[in-house]
């Protein structure tokens, strides 16, 4: 449900979960408005929060076209009908999606303790390890980043320590660097009926993992290609921007 009412409801729940608002205060604000939500200080507060989320670029609003059927209501009837209710929906922006991806990734990997050495950032300290790869004999086509020490040592071993030192082609050695490659990843997301079988939602957790994985790949491995595929009776490519709003 992407209606504004659903958003207000979710906001209220989030505020209460984070102890920013308690049940008592909610009742108080409603009571000030004769128990009605519409026009209450609570509605005003939630609207202000939605405005802030929009200003900061996390969400956008769009107005859906009112159904044709409703527009035709009262056709040929000169009397003025009641104004139709506005059908405003919200959408998560790319910034919002990026933020959710980051948070989901942090939650998935955030419970790391200190175990073996890896690449995940932790609050702990460790000694640095910088692997210096051995140099190799120069071959045509190699980048000429000469390892001068090994080159001279090779010449000395062959010719003995004398001046002038005669360098042969086979003496040349070059530094080796880590070779980094890019890779392509396709994430396949199952949205078949079994994902919501027996009323249990297995799709949302899977979607969160996909979102976190997408965030990890996009931020840690620039140059990688990432595509999402949604499969059910058939399969189709899913744009990353649509991931958050995809449902079974």
């Amino acid at each position: 449900d992407t209606s504004l009412d659903a958003l207000r409801q979710a906001l209220l729940q989030a505020l209460m979960d984070q102890d920013l608002l308690d049940e008592h205060r909610v009742q108080e604000m409603l009571a000030e408005n004769e128990g009605k939500f519409k026009g209450s200080a609570l509605e005003e507060m939630l609207n202000q929060l939605i405005e802030r989320l929009i200003e900061e670029g996390y969400l956008t609003l769009r107005e859906e076209q009112v159904r044709q059927q409703q527009q035709q209501r009262g056709n040929g009837n000169p009397e003025i009908s009641e104004p139709l209710p506005r059908n405003v929906k919200f959408e998560v922006t790319e910034k919002g999606l990026d933020f959710l991806g980051y948070k989901t990734l942090r939650n998935l990997l955030g419970s790391l303790g200190k175990s073996s050495f890896g690449r995940h950032d932790t609050p702990q300290l460790s000694t640095g390890v910088e692997a210096a790869a051995a140099s190799k004999a120069y071959e045509f086509g190699d980048t000429i980043n000469l390892d001068v020490n090994t080159t001279l040592l090779s010449a000395i071993q062959r010719e003995g320590l004398k001046m002038p030192l005669n360098l042969e082609y086979s003496d040349l050695h070059v530094h080796q660097c880590d070779y980094q490659s890019s890779c392509a990843t396709v994430v396949m997301l199952d949205c078949s009926h079994s994902m919501i079988l027996y009323g249990e939602d297995r799709f949302t957790p899977a979607k969160k993992v996909a979102l976190a994985l997408a965030h990890l790949i996009r931020t840690q491995y620039p140059g990688d290609a990432l595509k999402l595929v949604l499969f059910h009776d058939s399969a189709e490519e899913l744009p990353l921007a649509k991931l958050a709003t995809t449902q079974v």
Binding site: A10, A14, L15, G96, F99, L211
Partner: peptide, 20 residues
């Protein structure tokens, strides 16, 4: 006070609703 609420924390609290 609405302006004192951290939007990042709020978005995190909203994530379950926004993603489901």
């Amino acid at each position: 006070d609405v302006s004192s609420i951290n939007l990042g924390d709020l978005m995190e609290g909203l994530s379950d609703s926004l993603l489901s």
